[in-house]
Design a binder for these strands. Structure first.
Lengths: 164, 164
DNA sequence: TTTGAAATGTTATAGTATTTCGAAACATGG
DNA sequence: CCATGTTTCGAAATACTATAACATTTCAAA
């Protein structure tokens, strides 16, 4: 991932490696915080990272069930855990979950969601963050968390659309 | 409502009038667009405006049922209609709905949600809007809609908390 | 007054998330 | 190594949120 400038995932990127890195980061973060990165949690995180698209809890559940029994609470517990550690974000407008690329940095969620291909990328813009903070403060509001969800078309889908 | 600076709803504001104004605005907007402001739609909007807090669809349903039969689709249809006209916004992180103060202006949703008293106020910040637009554009993304949901404490709850 | 479109009624069902309680796995101190 | 308390997981039930599908009614324009 380039620094400073977000790029949508290119089709040629090595996704197996991408997943492996995410799992490695997760392992490290859990270790640092004395949390257990159990088999279920690892599997759920891995399933989420299969694509750069948000995935629903019940979709995760279905996948899990292909290798044994599982019930909704199993998935939701894992998702809660992963969210608490910043490894996964919930996309409110989709009721779905996506892996976080920068779990080591504390940040608020800023998401670009492509309505065509469903890919979801994260912005890490201090500028957006601070403008929101400023405006909220001006209204006498103390911010605990801010979520930004941006719907539209990613670069790739935009290009394809203009071809026609 | 003051211009330029958002104020959280003060407890002494004349809420009956507030509701009446919202209904009058709705009536006008419907008329302008050749849409029917039916009894159900009016009632649902009125229920939503009872408080400046987001209200769930099933809560609206319960209220509706106090004066006759009603089923979920009735409520969701009215909510869809009201959202299409900008009279109501959906707060994604709460699965709930809140009335819009500025339905005549096209705008994206920017919400301040108090986690203590649940009151929800809307920002109308061009600055937030344009910064998000700019950053998305820089990422090659074409924005169709943006949602900002800010969780924290409103002025009033903040003050009360500091008393203790 | 007919008629076609929009709105509503009704039943069923899909989709998302949590509660509750009990069993198992794990880390830690003795 | 065992006892013990804590965390994690299993399992069943249920709550909450939203939509599908089709019948019926309402309304306005021809």
């Amino acid at each position: 991932m380039k620094k400073g400038k977000l790029e949508f995932i290119s089709s040629e990127h090595d996704h197996q490696r991408c997943i492996a890195e995410a799992l490695a980061r997760a392992e490290e973060i859990c270790a640092n915080r004395g949390q257990r990165f159990t088999a279920i949690r690892r599997k759920v995180l891995e399933l989420i990272w299969q694509q750069h698209k948000p995935i629903g809890a019940y979709e995760v559940l279905e996948q899990l069930q292909r290798q044994g029994r599982a019930a909704p609470p199993t998935v939701y517990r894992a998702l809660d855990f992963l969210q608490d550690l910043g490894l996964v974000h919930r996309i409110e407008s989709l009721n779905a979950f996506v892996g976080c690329n920068q779990p080591h940095l504390p940040h608020e969620g800023q998401f670009l969601i492509c309505e065509s291909c469903r890919i979801c990328a994260e912005l890490y813009s201090d500028e957006i963050h601070s403008v929101i903070e400023k405006k909220a403060f001006a209204a006498g509001f103390k911010v605990r968390q801010q979520r930004v969800e941006i719907m539209g078309l990613c670069r790739k889908c935009l290009k394809e659309r203009s071809k026609k």
